[in-house]
C-alpha cells in the first residue's frame, strides 16, 4: 500500500499536562492511506491535512442537526452510513419543513479522489462543498455565521475546535475544514472486488461475477473507469428529461449549451446499497438501470457518443448479461465501510 503521512506542525496541545497538572488530549495527524488499486487523489490533502481531533469534530458536525435552520436536518439525514451515505429509498433529498430537493443525494465516499462535486460540478473544493447543502433553502436553509453562533454556545464544541485547530477558534473556516477532514478520511476500498484485485484473503469472485466483470469492462468501464468506477466527467447518458424539473445538469453551472443534460458520472462503489438511481432517483433497482441502458436511451441534446456506437442507442445487453453485471456490481459493496464505527458518531 502506498502510504502518505503528513507531518503537521506540532500544535500547542502536544504536552500531556498543562501547568495545573490537568490532562490534555493530544491532537495527532491521521494517516491518509491511498488504496493500492486507486489512482492518486485529485484534492491536495496537504491544504487541510486530517488530524484526530479535526476528524472527530468533523464527524460530530456531520451528525449535528444544528447545521440546519430549525435543528432537524443534519448532513447524515440524507447521507446515511448504512446506505453508503445516501438517502435510502428517497428519490430526492429532503430538507427542513419537510421540503424536497431536486436531486438524489449522492454517496459520500472517496471524496479526495474527486475533482468536482454534485451532479453538476457546482463545487471543486472538498473544503467548501458543505456550503451548498447548508444554504440550500430546500435542504438545510442555514448560513455559516448563524451556525457558528450556535456552536459557540456549546462547551463541547468550543473545546473540540480549540483542540483541532491552531488558532483554537470556533469559526466558519474551521467548521468547513473539520467537515472536509472527516470526508477526506471516508475511503471505501475493502469490498470483495477490492480484495480480489489486490489478491487478498476473501477476494474470490464466482463464475457469474467474473462474467459480469468482463461485460462491465467491455460495456461500462470507459465512463465508470478505474477502481473508483468513474472517470469524474460530465456526460449525457440519454435519460429522457423530466419535464416537471427540466434539470439542465452541468449547464446550470457553466452556462454552456454543450453541457445541457450532462451529469457527473457517479462512482459505482457500494451501488447495491444506494438505490434509487440516477440524478433524480428515477430507477428503483439496478435491473431498471440496465433495462434503461439496453433499451431506454433517448437521443437528447448532447447524448454521449459512447452510447451511439451500436445500431440501437445505448448498450445491447440480454437478461443473462444484465444479471451477470448486477452480480458483479454487488461485489463492490464494502461492508466494512458502511459499518465502520469510525464514521458513525454515537451520541
Amino acid at each position: 500500500m502506498k502510504k502518505i503521512v503528513y507531518f503537521l506542525s506540532i500544535l500547542s496541545v502536544l504536552s500531556c499536562q498543562d501547568d495545573n497538572g490537568e490532562y490534555i488530549e493530544i491532537d495527532q495527524p491521521l494517516d491518509f492511506i491511498i488504496p493500492a488499486n486507486f489512482p492518486e487523489p485529485v484534492q491536495d490533502i496537504s491544504y487541510n491535512a486530517p488530524t484526530q481531533k479535526g476528524f472527530e469534530l468533523g464527524r460530530k458536525l456531520f451528525y449535528d442537526g444544528r447545521l440546519s435552520r430549525d435543528g432537524t436536518v443534519s448532513c447524515s439525514f440524507c447521507h446515511e452510513q448504512a446506505s453508503a451515505f445516501t438517502h435510502h429509498g428517497h428519490d430526492f433529498s429532503h430538507g427542513v419543513d419537510n421540503l424536497e430537493g431536486l436531486r438524489n443525494a449522492p454517496a459520500v465516499q472517496n471524496m479526495a479522489f474527486q475533482g468536482e462535486y454534485f451532479y453538476d460540478g457546482a463545487s471543486s473544493s472538498l473544503e467548501m462543498l458543505s456550503i451548498v447543502p447548508i444554504h440550500n433553502p430546500v435542504e438545510m436553509d442555514e448560513n455559516l455565521e448563524s451556525i457558528v453562533l450556535k456552536l459557540k454556545q456549546d462547551p463541547v464544541y468550543v473545546k473540540l475546535f480549540s483542540q483541532a485547530f491552531a488558532n483554537k477558534e470556533v469559526s466558519s473556516g474551521n467548521m468547513l475544514k473539520a467537515l472536509g477532514q472527516f470526508m477526506t478520511m471516508m475511503v471505501s476500498a475493502n469490498s470483495r472486488y477490492d480484495k480480489y484485485v489486490r489478491n487478498e484473503a476473501g477476494g474470490t469472485l464466482s463464475t457469474q461475477e467474473l462474467q459480469g466483470r468482463a461485460l462491465f469492462q467491455t460495456n461500462c468501464a470507459t465512463c465508470h473507469a478505474t477502481d473508483l468506477f468513474t472517470d469524474n466527467k460530465f456526460r449525457n447518458n440519454g435519460l429522457p428529461p423530466n419535464p416537471n424539473l427540466n434539470d439542465l445538469g452541468r449547464e446550470t453551472v457553466t452556462g454552456f449549451a454543450y453541457d445541457r443534460y450532462k451529469f457527473k458520472v457517479p462512482s459505482l462503489r457500494n451501488v447495491a446499497l444506494t438505490a434509487p438511481y440516477m440524478h433524480d432517483g428515477r430507477f428503483g433497482s439496478l435491473q431498471s438501470v440496465l433495462n434503461f441502458y439496453a433499451s431506454g436511451v433517448q437521443n437528447t441534446q448532447n447524448l454521449d457518443p459512447l452510447l451511439q456506437q451500436h445500431p440501437t442507442l445505448g448498450i445491447p445487453l440480454n437478461q443473462q448479461e444484465k444479471e451477470a453485471i448486477i452480480a458483479f456490481l454487488k461485489t463492490l459493496t464494502d461492508e466494512e465501510f458502511v459499518s465502520n464505527p469510525l464514521f458513525y458518531f454515537r451520541t
Binding site: 491544504y47 487541510n48 473544493s125 472538498l126 473544503e127 467548501m128 466558519s172 473556516g173 468547513l176
Partner: peptide, 15 residues
C-alpha cells in the same frame, strides 16, 4: 482551491 485555510475569514466578509 486551497479553501478556507488560505482565505481566512474572507468567505464571511464576502457573504
Amino acid at each position: 482551491l486551497q479553501g478556507e485555510t488560505a482565505q481566512q475569514s474572507f468567505w464571511d466578509l464576502a457573504f
